[in-house]
Amino acid sequence: MGKLTNLTSKGQVTIPKDVSDALGLRPGKPVGLELRGEGEAVIRRGPVRVVPDPARVAAAIERIRRVQRDYHHLAKGLDPDSYMADLREPVPLPRETGE
C-alpha cells in the first residue's frame, strides 16, 4: 500500500488514518522509526506495555522446572563423547585372535 504525505515546516509527517489504524497507532503512544537505507524508513508501533497474566507466568515457570528436572543430567558438564558413552551400552573391544 503506497501513500504520500507532506512534511511540515517543523519536520512532522501526518500518517494517513488507514495506515495508523492498520498499525494500531494511537495518539500519544510511541511510534518506532527505523532507517533502512538511502531514502527508506520503516514505521512501527512502539513498544506496548503488557500486564503479565499470573496463570501464564506460573505455567511457564512450571515448564522451565520440568525441563530442568528432565534434563538435569546435562548439567554435569560432560563433553559430548562422554555424554554419549553414558547413554550407550558398553561396546565390547574386538577380540584378538591368537593365531
Rank of each mutant, 00 (worst) to 15 (best):
P47T: 05
A41M: 13
R88C: 01
D70N: 10
M84D: 07
H73K: 06
D53M: 02
V19Y: 01
D53V: 09
R45I: 07
L74Q: 07
R26T: 14
V50D: 04
L74S: 08
T14K: 08
S82I: 01
V67C: 03
A75H: 02
A60L: 13
P80E: 06
R63G: 10
G46W: 03
G32Y: 08
R65W: 03
R88W: 00
M1V: 09
T97F: 03
E40Y: 06
P47L: 08
A58D: 15
E62F: 00
E96Y: 04
E34K: 12
L7V: 12
V19T: 09
G2F: 11
V57H: 03
G32P: 02
L74I: 14
R63S: 14
R45K: 09
T97P: 09
I15K: 09
R26V: 11
P54D: 14
V31G: 08
A85F: 03
L74M: 13
K17D: 15
A22N: 06
P16E: 08
K17I: 14
K76F: 09
T14C: 06
V19R: 00
L74R: 11
H72V: 11
R45N: 14
P27D: 15
P16R: 00
S82G: 09
I43H: 10
V31P: 08
S20T: 13
G32Q: 10
G77W: 07
T8A: 08
L4K: 07
R36T: 08
E34T: 14
E34N: 04
P30E: 04
D21M: 02
A41W: 07
A60M: 12
G46T: 05
A59Y: 01
G11A: 04
S82W: 02
P80S: 06
T5C: 10
S82F: 04
E40F: 05
Y83F: 12
G28H: 02
L35M: 03
A59R: 06
A22D: 12
D70F: 01
R95V: 13
L25S: 11
P27G: 12
D81I: 13
T14H: 03
P92A: 14
L87S: 02
K3E: 14
P16K: 01
E89G: 11
G37C: 06
G24E: 08
K29C: 09
I61N: 12
V50W: 03
T8W: 01
D81M: 05
G28S: 11
I61C: 09
A60E: 15
D21W: 00
P92F: 05
Q12S: 10
N6S: 11
E89N: 06
R63T: 14
E40V: 13
G98E: 11
S9E: 12
K76W: 09
A41P: 00
V13F: 15
V13G: 08
V31L: 12
V51C: 00
A22T: 07
E96D: 10
L33R: 03
K29T: 12
P30C: 01
G24K: 03
A75K: 04
A85P: 00
R45L: 12
